[in-house]
Nucleic acid binder design. Sequence first.
DNA 1: TGCAAATAACTTGTATGCAAGTCAAATGCT
DNA 2: AGCATTTGACTTGCATACAAGTTATTTGCA
Lengths: 142, 142
Amino acid sequence: MKAQDCIFFQLAKASQTGVKFWSQIVASFGVTAVQAMVLGFLHEADQISSRELGERTQLDSATLTGVLDRLESGGLIERTPNPADRRAIRVVLTTKGKATTLEMRTVMEEANAEFLHDLSDQERQTLRELLGKIRSAHHKGG
Amino acid sequence: MKAQDCIFFQLAKASQTGVKFWSQIVASFGVTAVQAMVLGFLHEADQISSRELGERTQLDSATLTGVLDRLESGGLIERTPNPADRRAIRVVLTTKGKATTLEMRTVMEEANAEFLHDLSDQERQTLRELLGKIRSAHHKGG
DNA sequence: TGCAAATAACTTGTATGCAAGTCAAATGCT
DNA sequence: AGCATTTGACTTGCATACAAGTTATTTGCA
């Protein structure tokens, strides 16, 4: 078996290609690929705790603290206290954060389509299914 | 479109799942996932320059310098001078590096099979093809 | 009620990834 | 030969990842 045939290598490199592609697109909004993803999730569910945000984005709490720090410095989100649990925070989009996120969501759809431009509709569907199958198979101790 | 349906997110998370899986396996050899990958490529082509190794592994020269540093500290590789080009180095596996790499290649095949355990032969084949298609479509300015 | 165990966010240390820049050596062109 | 350009490896700075540990707070249970 050649190293290039290793599924871990293939996944990692396809992922890197995607992240680079997406990074260049969202760079014009002043955010990184990961930051853009976090904003996208916040657009779906605002006011959630760091823990829940980490669950949805599949980001480690250590990683997320840094990402939130930079988003907060950029004025895109705010950390507000949660009166019901003083250990937790509530992450909220600022006005600027909401505007940026809205703009990016349009761009994201275009980017998704363009990134998979060379694949047929059937292939895109299959790819998403297979990637999902992998993740669910290895979810928490599979 | 939900953030979870973003192909960049799906690729990144499937990749992370793979890297974590592979990392746990190679940890017993005292190397990281990336280090194991580099060793795998060196097993195919020893004595190559850092530039060529970077081409094959798709690792940035900045990243590769650090990876080679740690492999060299671990006694798995050595940097030797290239008399034909004094700018370049030649990366060679040590005896220990060769032994480790040999052992790992067996484990790698098992890990590949186990990681894709929930997929049929047809699905595995399709997945590899689609990932390859993505990478080649975006290779150097696509 | 009181205290051990669990939890939320953060911190620390190490390893990629990548853009940008440095330095020495090799190349190309006149 | 002489010199600008290119190249190979390295360095720096910043942004993820993630294991491991800290602190304050909350929960669960005797």
